[in-house]
Design a protein around this nucleic acid. Structure first.
Lengths: 218, 218
DNA sequence: CTTAGCTTAGTGATAATGTCACCGACAAAA
DNA sequence: TTTTGTCGGTGACATTATCACTAAGCTAAG
């Protein structure tokens, strides 16, 4: 199966370039929880994610952590790209959140594709642009938004079709870059208002409307 | 005078591409304090900064603001690039901190250069990479570092050869994404310890060594 | 089944940071 | 010289972070 079909942004790639790209890349599988890159672990090729998701977070010296964004299927991992192109060191870490499949693209092939295909260029620059937007949003939120608003938003984001959030307080704290105790206390407050029901490792949303209202209140 | 000489990363550009680039770009002058791009103000071309500096900051709905990074001479402004390439809307704002000169590059010329020159590609990707690193650092600092440490660092960064910092408390607050009162109180504490002398619009560093020591303390 | 050991969550005390409302000091312009 | 706007100071209070500890729930080994 041709992995490029997963990348709708590359639909318009010319047949010969498409063939060339497939020929020169390799599909790799990586098990869940693998550290793809991080401090002291340089990626060895550029990754285009075919299935699964990768969580990218920033680590602090003090052991705290904040989730920056996620790479989903059909997106390229711009940190592996940037890391290989610009020889910069990053302090961020990328971890496979699920078992993943990715196309591994050598530097030289990447460079050739950028040179030869306007579609490929557009895809790459769009990816960069999207990530930068994500980072801007993270900055705005941690700098200016109240933690209860951010938590309400995150609960809605992480909830499944049954309004369940399978996450420990610590995981939620990491998502928002705060401390576990802060999350525990906020969840107690939400529970007191009957917006959620908290149990070990699971948060049940009872009143998602109320949470939505809070998360929207600037 | 050939503006490309200001961009050492483009030294290796081939003579014909260099000539082409100069021919197809326009050098523009922009006075200090001009808003180059921002919410509701899209840039109309990509900018390569020849002289001066541009301050890029993120605005919040509540009127607060945080400085994300600066573009200096010899660097390209990747937000104008990203904005024109990816049609994304950004909430960040770019302001000329000084009178500036910049090379204005049309989209089509940019695309052609990326296609035809490996050196140009490298320059562009390096710029992107550098900015992302800057944003990572900002996130780490606002999420995990104490404000006194960040302020000490910023004072050292902004001080001139006479250990003077020409900035109001409000400006320092914006640099760090915090409130003026917080800065006022921290400066009072620094002054109490005889590390600085504060007067209207000016901070004099009396003991930069002590400030350095604080800013280095994890 | 029971208990030991680990993970997860709860709590009080205190520190650090942010917010609000206001005041006074200073400086440039009228 | 008066007015006006910018800048900085302050108290009261709210929010968030940190620290040290306890307790509760889950799992697996004895």
């Amino acid at each position: 199966m041709d992995w490029i079909t997963q990348f709708s942004a590359l639909d318009d790639l010319s047949p010969d370039l498409r063939a060339k790209l497939i020929l020169q890349t390799q599909v790799v599988s990586v098990p869940k929880d693998t550290v793809i890159f991080g401090p002291g672990k340089k990626p060895d090729s550029m990754m285009f994610l075919i299935s699964g998701s990768v969580r990218v977070s920033q680590l602090s010296e003090t052991g705290r952590e904040i989730v920056l964004y996620r790479i989903n299927a059909g997106q390229s991992c711009f940190l592996t790209t940037a890391s290989l192109l610009a020889y910069e060191e990053y302090t961020a870490e990328g971890v496979a959140e699920t078992d993943i499949k990715a196309a591994s693209i050598p530097r030289s092939v990447f460079d050739a594709m950028v040179s030869q295909s306007a579609e490929f260029r557009h895809f790459i620059f769009s990816t960069y642009s999207k990530r930068i937007t994500d980072l801007f949003i993270v900055i705005e939120e941690i700098a200016f938004k109240r933690i209860d608003i951010r938590l309400a938003y995150k609960l809605l984001e992480l909830s499944d079709e049954n309004d369940l959030v399978a996450a420990t307080h610590q995981v939620l704290a990491t998502e928002l870059g705060t401390a576990r105790e802060v999350i525990s206390r906020q969840l107690q407050e939400f529970q007191r208002r009957s917006w959620i029901k908290a149990s070990r490792g699971i948060v049940t949303l009872i009143d998602p409307i109320a949470l939505k209202k809070l998360s929207d209140s600037e």
